[in-house]
Write a protein that binds this DNA or RNA. Sequence first.
DNA 1: GAATCGATGTATCGAACCGATACATCATGT
DNA 2: ACATGATGTATCGGTTCGATACATCGATTC
Lengths: 215, 215
Amino acid sequence: MGKRAEALELAVLGLLHDAPLHGYELRKRVNSLLGWGRAFSYGTLYPTLKAMVRLNYLAEDEPVDTMVPPASHRSGRRGRIAYRLTPEGKERFAELLTQTGPSAWDDEHFGVHFAFFGRADADTRLRILIGRRSRLQEKLDQFRTSLSRTRERLDAYTVELQRHGLESVEREVKWLDGLISAEQRSMDPSPGATPTPGAGQPPAPVTGNEGENGR
Amino acid sequence: MGKRAEALELAVLGLLHDAPLHGYELRKRVNSLLGWGRAFSYGTLYPTLKAMVRLNYLAEDEPVDTMVPPASHRSGRRGRIAYRLTPEGKERFAELLTQTGPSAWDDEHFGVHFAFFGRADADTRLRILIGRRSRLQEKLDQFRTSLSRTRERLDAYTVELQRHGLESVEREVKWLDGLISAEQRSMDPSPGATPTPGAGQPPAPVTGNEGENGR
DNA sequence: GAATCGATGTATCGAACCGATACATCATGT
DNA sequence: ACATGATGTATCGGTTCGATACATCGATTC
């Protein structure tokens, strides 16, 4: 199926879980959900949607009122197609949510999985976070060794690029550390006391985030 | 030609500028040069190399001694092919170095261009840095608006993901700010005084980098 | 009121690209 | 002797992208 489409599948399932959407809107949400990363194109989205319909994870609805202002006449319209999750789709979503292999913490996958952490159980969350962390740690190590091997013959700009790349990954690791310890704090503290009902809040991540947004 | 292969072309030209290399080694260097980003596969590298040979930017050398320890017998060897830059290749490299459009500050391209800043003139460097900065600023803006539009209905993990993504881009912008002002400082300060000879150092970037690697 | 424009919307195609694999040599270990 | 793993060149099938075609709608403008 391809890594990329795999990530897209999860994103679609997650976004459609609450409400049906049509392709255009779906694409916007997926791409803003992942934000920083590469955007999905229609050439990927529509084939994937069709495949998911074929697998019976999705069903197509012709008329949808979402956002159509007056629901007026529209006779010969080539209407928008709203995609809706089937029961099998919900199962599939639940199944993907519990996955904890590399298919959850790879670069392509981690973002989507994290975005739906609220729907996963604490155990899965922790496993994925830790897996992701060690994945980054690997990258960091081989990075550092390759840097120290060639440090002499690099010009200053190249070095600066490497340094900046390294620093970014290091920050990522620290971010994960905060998230991990927050998760652990919220599941450990006293066995038998308020075991986080239902799905749950993220346990107050330890980022140095001072809120600059009014509201 | 495709954005990705375009970036690869510049990387190959730059790496081969100093010394000939064979494919395997070339790939390793390209991918460690770019570090954080996606790695190039052989399925991209070899076709690109062939295309560049066809365009006469590169020439193939059969026997190469680089790193072959004892240079022993090897009779029926299917030897490594060393790629070497032709004069046309050097021209092409110089041409690509002076480009300052989006093809220099896009996500795909910026890293490679930056890596070879030492070979570009100060003017080009500054234009690319500024272009890159405004590119990121755009992304930042649309990010922030899309966030404030949907802030209410997002669960906490999704918000945290967005926040982290935003912070990363913000850091990137600050990094660029440091580089930009450093460049400006090194070309402006007093017209006629030590105008940075030849290619030059990167002008002491203003990162708050405390070295924590014990070497 | 028609004409232009940009946003919204579905859909597909060719080209670009990746991931896996085949194949071969060599050093090393057992 | 045989396996294992690093080095090395090369290609193929399938995935994914970027561009485009096409269509409807609301707003703006003359």
